[in-house]
Write a protein that binds this DNA or RNA. Structure first.
Length: 798
DNA sequence: AGCACGCCGACT
DNA sequence: GTCGGCGTGCTC
């Protein structure tokens, strides 16, 4: 017997192993590892992934596979073994590892129906539900309170429950029609048709001179009713043809030519090309200051890869996947590029994925999950802005795209390029140790000078009576740019500055009733929303604690900055970019285009404007408060501040006009601010490495974070204690366990959260130990409402 | 996760 | 006596 071993789509510990199924004779030539199948699982049907096809089963009684969901495997052998690696590395369920590799459109959609087995009588009460339909949704019956009646009928065999499994996404199709008649027949039939069949005659005449040609129904202009009757008469034939959705709206891209590389760029690209020619794996860290032409190096390296007949993946942070970037790749590589990012609809992502899978493209440009692009001959993987934290997925499987990239490069013996102006300490340290090859681009293309940076001490401003959010220096410079017709970018570090509601009399802050966080104020709807659990409520007009009316929204949101700016400079044309103004599809691009067309003087925004902005007339960048994230309880806060300031400063003076940057801060002496102003990465690295060494943080130690949550605080705390006592003796003496302590966010969604942080250098047995912990606490009966989650190499410690 | 099976309180 | 509550255990 042919047997398939299948991972089923049930993400719990108990089912996190393969189940064997019989492969029915009719599928024996079809079913292969890497395919999705529908299998019976208990009383229902679920989606599953075939891992293996074999001759013998582990157990005797096997159920047969219901049907395959794919014609060809959706995961190749390499991706299947990558899923093994991912499962082991991130301690996730196998099914999660498999699913993360595919577009959301390929996740299963489950529906439950009830159907009458024969025309036999069912109780009138049930009969009435059907209302002449063949089958009705399960929910419809249970909502009507007929559950017990239905159970009875099912037992009698007069009703059956149908479990349907479908893919979520659909291929887009067009209706094609063809005239089956010869030219002569067509003319004849038009003649003998009844006079009143005007539409049908018209329709047939469309095919004059092109019978037996497939035409899209839409093109012919024939209505679907007309088509239907002509098909019934046998004059037309129809079919559905698959087509791709076009996220770029038919845009045409003018092809461009590779640019001449500077001496600096040539020196940097040489080792990469050598490596490509040799066909060996290896990781390069391309450290290039902003504006040093990293992208051109990417483009030319990829060109080489395509020449070799291989494929390339370029990852960019979600936020910088701007039309500008896409355009550059489309112009260089034309239709050989697939683009994958969150701006696409589920269907569009599905289409891009299929283009990749069918090898219709050579290059993928995409955000984090594009690292799983189903290529089979990868020649190069590039991660741009490698320091970006968005490359780490914060839900299961908790993977870092950088690690996946390197893992895949081992399989394909291809190089990986990590590019950044401000590399993560981890990567830079590895480059210094020789684990990665360091390539430096320390000059801007055309030797444009870096912008001058002014650090303004906001405490000083306050002391001198300036209570506005603009320092005098910044304000003067903005005014100056307005007069000269040059552009300004104002950057607000929104994290730590979310607008919340506070009572000025008693200090009450509106918090989420289910989580220990303050809620964010949304002005347009006068609503408060919790970003952790999604809870929403109307914002109060009086303080619920002291009934004072002096309750208002606090913190400097972009809206507030805009208001104040308009008060001070009424003539300024401002574009505000934040979650509120970029919510709709394409809004992001539209606003940027507007700014690029000089329809505004000032661009005001959050993180999202820190990257990729490249307009010639930006000569001033203002950072309204540089240190908001500096005081977060996060060992990476200095690094993030340095990166952000460097990044933002890079927006100014990229072309002929020189740029200026004003950085406002309450802690001007902080090294991350000072050194960002000097654009001195090397010194920052040295200084920050010292801090990390003292604190015992990466890159000197690895981290693993265990979070334990329960609806009762005591339960969470005691379980956390137990876990620590269990783990401690199993680790070497070099490992450090911090905690257990209550999480910085002590409660989310009414669950109390405790955590412990493990710092370690070399613990070969760690994942095994942690897996045991997970297994222990997910065993039913033992878990008793406890949820344990483990994040290896965490980025968010809350 | 679902779902069935099974064993105890309030109803026709 | 039965309906239905949710504890326990299984799914090839």
């Amino acid at each position: 017997m042919i047997v398939a071993s299948v991972i089923v789509d049930v993400a719990v510990m108990q089912t996190d192993r393969p189940f064997d199924y019989e492969v029915p004779d009719r599928w024996q030539e079809v079913i292969q590892p890497g395919m999705r199948v529908v299998v019976p699982f208990g009383p229902r049907h679920v989606q599953g992934f075939v891992l293996d096809v074999k001759e013998e089963a582990e157990i005797r009684k096997l159920k047969p596979i219901v049907e395959p969901m794919d014609i060809v495997p959706v995961l190749n052998e390499e991706l299947l073994s990558l899923a093994d690696w991912l499962t082991a590395e991130s301690l996730c369920f196998k099914i999660s590892a498999l699913q993360v590799m595919l577009p959301a459109a390929m996740k299963a959609k489950y529906q439950k129906f009830i159907r009458k087995t024969r025309e036999q009588s069912v109780q009138p009460a049930v009969e009435s539900l059907f209302n002449n339909r063949e089958e009705i949704p399960w929910e419809e019956a249970t909502d009507a309170g007929k559950l017990s009646d239905i159970r009875k009928e099912v037992k009698n065999g007069t009703l059956e429950v149908i479990y349907s499994v479908k893919s979520k996404g659909r291929k887009k199709t067009v209706r094609m029609v063809k005239c089956t008649l010869s030219e002569n027949e067509l003319a004849e039939i038009v003649n003998i048709m009844p006079k009143n069949a005007v539409k049908q005659k018209e329709a047939l005449l469309v095919f004059t001179g092109r019978t037996h040609h497939w035409l899209s129904l839409k093109e012919t202009g024939i209505s679907s009713a007309t088509a239907k009757s002509l098909i019934e008469k046998g004059f037309l034939e129809e079919k559905q043809e698959e087509m791709y959705r076009d996220p770029l709206g038919g845009q045409h891209f003018e092809p461009d030519k590779p640019l001449m590389l500077t001496e600096n760029q040539q020196k940097a690209i040489r080792p990469i090309l050598d490596n490509l020619n040799a066909g060996t794996s290896g990781t390069f860290l391309l450290h290039g200051v902003t504006g040093s032409g990293k992208t051109e190096i990417y483009l030319q390296s990829i060109s080489r890869v395509i020449e070799k007949g291989q494929e390339a993946i370029l990852l960019v942070p979600e936020i910088s996947l701007t039309p500008q970037m896409t355009e550059r790749f489309k112009r260089r590589f034309g239709n050989d590029v697939a683009v994958l990012h969150s701006g696409l609809s589920t269907g569009e992502k599905y289409d891009e994925w299929r283009k990749i899978s069918r090898k219709e493209v050579k290059v993928v440009v995409g955000a984090r999950s594009a690292i799983f692009a189903p290529f089979e001959n990868i020649g190069l993987i590039i991660i741009d802005e490698e320091h970006e934290t968005s490359y780490k997925q914060e839900e299961n499987p908790r993977y870092h795209a950088r690690d996946v990239a390197i893992q895949r490069s081992f399989h394909y013996n291809c190089p990986v390029i990590l590019g950044s102006a401000t590399p993560s300490l981890e990567s830079y340290a590895r480059a210094k140790k020789g684990v990665y090859t360091l390539l430096s681009l320390d000059q801007r293309v055309n030797d444009r000078p870096l912008p001058t940076v002014d650090i303004v001490d906001m405490r000083e401003e306050l002391r001198e009576g300036n209570r506005s959010m603009f320092s005098r220096t910044l304000f003067e410079k903005i005014k100056d740019r307005l007069e000269k017709g040059e552009q300004t970018v104002l950057f607000l570090n929104k994290r730590g500055y979310s607008s919340f509601i506070m009572c000025r009399d008693c200090g009450y802050v509106a918090g989420c009733p289910h989580c220990d966080v303050s809620m964010t104020y949304h002005r347009h709807r006068h609503q408060l929303k919790c970003h952790y659990c999604g809870y929403e409520e109307a914002a109060p007009y009086v303080c619920p604690e002291c009934t004072s009316e002096h309750i208002r929204h606090f913190g400097t949101g972009t809206q507030k900055v805009e208001e104040e700016l308009l008060k001070l400079l009424p003539e300024a044309r401002i574009i505000r970019m934040d979650v509120d103004t970029t919510g709709t599809k394409g809004a992001h691009e539209k606003l940027l285009r507007k700014f690029g067309d000089k329809e505004a003087d000032i661009l005001l925004g959050t993180q999202m404007i820190a990257k990729g902005l490249d307009f010639p007339d930006i000569t001033l960048v203002g950072v309204l408060s540089a240190d908001t994230m500096l005081h977060l309880p996060d060992f990476r806060s200095s690094e993030k501040t340095f990166q952000l300031l460097t990044q933002v400063s890079g927006r100014a003076g990229r072309h002929t006009l020189p740029g200026e940057v004003v950085v406002q801060t309450y802690t001007p002496e902080h090294y991350s601010i000072q050194l960002a102003a000097e654009q001195n990465y090397e010194s920052f690295y040295q200084q920050e490495m010292m801090m990390r060494k003292m604190g015992g943080y990466p890159p000197f130690y690895f981290l693993a974070l265990i979070t334990i949550s329960h609806t009762e605080a005591i339960e969470a705390a005691s379980a956390a204690n137990k876990i620590v006592t269990k783990i401690k003796p199993a680790l070497s003496s070099a490992a450090v366990i911090l905690g257990p302590v209550a999480s910085p966010i002590a409660r989310i969604n009414n669950r109390y959260r405790w955590q412990c942080l493990i710092k370690y250098k070399r613990e070969p047995k760690l994942t095994e130990i942690l897996k045991k912990v997970l297994e222990h606490y997910t065993k039913q009966g033992k878990s008793n409402g406890l949820i344990v989650s483990i994040d290896i190499h965490p980025y968010v410690l809350m």
